[in-house]
Simulated scan of single mutants.
Amino acid sequence: MWEPKNLLSPCLLLLLGERPDHGYELVRRLRPLGIVDGDTSTVYRTLRSLERHGCLCSDWAPSGTGPARRVYRITAKGRTELLSWLGTLEETRRRLDYYMCRLAPLIENRHPHPDGA
């Protein structure tokens, strides 16, 4: 089954393409995308995996309010990977649009109009 969390890698690449960031802030920025449901360990595992594959790099940066934080940055390979997701996501959107078009008549038939039409 497709779930938004399956888009964690491309969403992280997107967010890091916008600007470098540390894990906690990335988790916060993922929430409006519907990706994080409280399991932040998955985010950190995915960040490490993307870094191992050369899509990200990271270094430690001092924090004004506590210990140093690992800041992640997208690499050239990560930007290429992000662009490769474009075709996949466009195809997914086409399939979802097709599905929704076929679903619409069923929903309309299931919920009669208030005027009896």
Rank of each mutant, 00 (worst) to 15 (best):
R110V: 01
L89N: 10
R52Y: 09
S63K: 00
S58F: 09
G38L: 09
N109C: 04
P67I: 11
R93L: 15
I35S: 02
P62M: 08
D59S: 10
L13N: 06
V36A: 04
E25M: 10
Y98C: 08
C101K: 14
D115K: 00
R93H: 11
L56F: 13
A76R: 10
L82A: 14
P114S: 02
W2Y: 07
L50H: 03
G66E: 05
E51F: 03
R31Q: 14
W60K: 15
R19L: 05
G64D: 03
P114Y: 00
T80D: 11
H53A: 04
P112A: 05
W85Y: 15
W85A: 09
R110M: 13
R94C: 04
R28C: 05
L106Q: 02
L13G: 09
L86R: 15
W2F: 15
L8M: 09
I107R: 06
C57P: 00
C55G: 05
S41L: 12
E18W: 11
R69Q: 11
T88F: 12
G38A: 05
V71Q: 03
Y99W: 13
R70T: 02
R19H: 11
C57A: 12
E25Y: 07
P4F: 07
A104S: 06
G23W: 07
R29L: 14
D21T: 08
R79T: 03
D97F: 01
L96M: 14
M100D: 13
A61K: 11
G87A: 15
L30A: 06
T46H: 09
L8S: 00
L83M: 06
E18G: 06
L86E: 13
T92V: 10
L50Y: 09
A68K: 12
T46F: 08
P112L: 04
Y99L: 13
S58L: 05
P4A: 14
V71N: 01
I107T: 06
R95T: 07
T65Y: 11
L82C: 04
S49M: 06
G116I: 00
C101W: 10
G116W: 00
E3N: 02
R19W: 08
E81A: 14
R93V: 08
L8K: 00
R45W: 04
T42W: 04
R19K: 13
V71P: 00
L86M: 06
S63A: 06
G66N: 06
L26H: 10
L106T: 01
A76Q: 13
R110K: 11
D59L: 10
W60F: 14
L96Q: 13
D21A: 15
D21I: 05
L33H: 14
R102Q: 12
E81K: 13
R73P: 02
E90T: 05
W60S: 15
Y72S: 06
L86T: 12
R95S: 10
R52C: 01
R52D: 12
T46K: 15
T42A: 13
S63V: 01
L103Y: 08
D37G: 07
T65R: 12
L83H: 12
G78M: 11
L56Y: 03
R70Q: 15
V43K: 02
A61F: 15
Y24E: 14
P67V: 07
P20A: 11
T65A: 11
L103F: 10
H113P: 00
L15Q: 09
I74D: 04
D39S: 02
W2G: 00
E51T: 02
G116S: 03
L33P: 03
S41G: 08
S58I: 05
D39K: 06
R52V: 02
V27C: 10
E81R: 15
T46W: 03
